[in-house]
Design a protein around this nucleic acid. Sequence first.
DNA 1: CACTATTATATCGTGCACGATTTTATTTCA
DNA 2: TGAAATAAAATCGTGCACGATATAATAGTG
Lengths: 141, 141
Amino acid sequence: MDDELKLKSQVCFPVYALSREIVNVYRPILDEIDITYPQYLVMMVLWENEPQQVNEIGDKLNLDNGTITPLLKRMAAKGLISRKRSSNDERVVEISLTEQGKLLQTKAAVVPQKVVEAMGITPEDLKQLKELVIKILNRAK
Amino acid sequence: MDDELKLKSQVCFPVYALSREIVNVYRPILDEIDITYPQYLVMMVLWENEPQQVNEIGDKLNLDNGTITPLLKRMAAKGLISRKRSSNDERVVEISLTEQGKLLQTKAAVVPQKVVEAMGITPEDLKQLKELVIKILNRAK
DNA sequence: CACTATTATATCGTGCACGATTTTATTTCA
DNA sequence: TGAAATAAAATCGTGCACGATATAATAGTG
């Protein structure tokens, strides 16, 4: 049998498995502040700068608008963000943080440390992983 | 602002983004043999050994049965696999390849090379990535 | 031998994730 | 200026992904 078609030979499968494992590690930690991992990513984008357009957020997270639009709607329904049509350009929807969304940042401050602890990963491996993944990601896109 | 809550500081986000990018690279390639990436993973598990129980496949792919059961049902509906209750233990469902499922292996032989080309990744980075990700994955679980 | 615990699978509900298409607004340029 | 092109969001359909729960069969135990 062709070795390349064996699961053990795969490089992509461990990445796919690690990605899901990461989300599973985040889940119980983010449950405490009542958001999901993709929602947490959106919040990080907005804590850094707001308001932002739907597409700006999608570009930063590499999510297309078929994903980001319903994601933002769930977040708006939860009271974390607000959506307003731009008066300059009626096509654009500006996403801003609500007071509740701003306050969540304080509660989220403990998340990074908790995740590192839960994953049991060393800072060296972390750094190496990030550099390598970003290198590959940049080439792939 | 707390730097740890910035997207740029994140390690997990690049892994999550790379995982989705990988699936997106596979998509057009696997479209030609009419399967999805998770279905391709199941096929690899079965090409290596069959029949296998539902849970055996799920364990190898780290997928719980809320994911694997409907996935296998779609594959059975497509004619790639067959599902049969074990006569020894009526709880167990044995998953086997159909003739069509076996034949697909030949058509899939070109997939690994095509993916490597499409990703534009060097063999050294590939090897390094795999080792690092597996190391982290083993610690996290 | 019943009664409880365990195991294997299925089901249900929610939330991504993406391609394809649609809708509406703005821009371009003949 | 008005038709065609482009751009921003939204919508639709399909397929994961997972926790929680349910169902049914087998195993263990007093």
